[in-house]
């Protein structure tokens, strides 16, 4: 029973990682860049949701929607202003720029809202479902359900819509995609919009679990989710899902059975082992050379 409850908590945490990892993996798949500012978009999402819930007194759903809208606009703006001018530049320049954007957002938040921690209100019921001696909090259940919904919606979008097909085409060959009449810049914007919107959803779930809002709040979940994306195979959407869930479960089990202090080290050790055995990650495709 104890193990089952750890497992479910792990899946809850993993769901948050998975939703964030989708942002990393989609942007990598299409724009071929690591957007290290993604974690800080989560932070902005958390502040927006916080102010919407407390200062404006909005109910949960409108607050989440507002956060999603702000993050979507922010993500697309970051891409347009910071990354788009570097489309022809080396990937190192883009990486450094992403780190710059990350610091810009963190320091901007500190300037605007101070570095003092704000307490995120408990908006999602803190009750729990009891099955025999097994206790699962509603928050965990909601988090897992949201993750499954997001995953299902995204899979449908990618596979069934013409924009989704265009996204897959861009991830394979942007030049050929342009020859199909696909506006590659628009597809990149859509990718950033989706990733950033998901970051806002993740921020509310994250802050409901760990209710403190501060300017560097996105850094650690960002790194973890990035790890999850690499773990599952960066560029692969099911990979991000699987990687996120596994990472969450490993982290919680390591905390419960081995050591709280060592849990992060264990998570990264598992990543190293996986990458040694399968360098493309669990579900990653080998980049095929053109003949």
């Amino acid at each position: 029973m104890e193990f089952l409850s750890y497992l479910i908590n792990g899946l809850g945490l993993g769901s948050v990682y998975a939703i964030i990892a989708l942002g990393y993996t989609m942007v990598y798949g299409i724009a071929k860049m690591l957007n290290f500012a993604h974690g800080d978009v989560i932070m902005i999402g958390a502040y927006v949701a916080f102010f919407a819930l407390t200062n404006f007194g909005l109910p949960l759903i409108p607050a989440v929607l507002l956060s999603v809208i702000v993050c979507t606009v922010l993500g697309v703006t970051i891409e347009r202003l910071a990354y788009k001018p570097l489309r022809q530049a080396s990937s190192l320049s883009v990486l450094i720029t992403a780190i710059g954007v990350s610091y810009f957002l963190q320091n901007g938040a500190q300037l605007l809202w101070s570095s003092a921690t704000k307490v995120f209100p408990a908006v999602i019921s803190n009750g729990s479902l009891n099955i025999g001696s097994l206790q699962i909090s509603y928050l965990t259940l909601i988090t897992i359900c949201v993750c499954i919904l997001v995953m299902a919606a995204l899979t449908l979008f990618i596979n069934r819509t013409s924009t989704g097909r265009a996204m897959r085409a861009c991830s394979e060959d942007k030049g050929a995609a342009a020859l199909m009449g696909i506006n590659v810049n628009f597809i990149i914007s859509v990718t950033f919009a989706i990733g950033s919107g998901l970051a806002a959803i993740a921020s509310v779930l994250l802050c409901s679990t760990y209710p403190s809002v501060f300017p560097t709040l996105g850094a650690m979940p960002g790194i973890k989710a990035f790890t999850a994306a690499v773990f599952g195979g960066i560029g692969s959407i099911p990979g991000a899902f699987l990687g996120g869930l596994l990472l969450g479960v490993i982290e919680i089990l390591a905390k419960a059975y081995i050591s709280t202090q060592l849990s992060d080290a264990i998570v990264f050790a598992v990543l190293i082992v996986v990458l040694l055995i399968k360098p493309t990650g669990l579900l990653g495709r080998k980049l095929s050379e053109k003949v």
């Binding site: 013409s162 097909r165 265009a166 897959r168 394979e172 060959d173 030049g175 995609a177 199909m180 009449g181």
Partner: peptide, 20 residues
Amino acid sequence: GRRVFAQQTVEENLALGAYT
């Protein structure tokens, strides 16, 4: 070099041709 979208089906490739 053809540059077909290797991971998509033949029909999806053709649908992409009619994207606009």
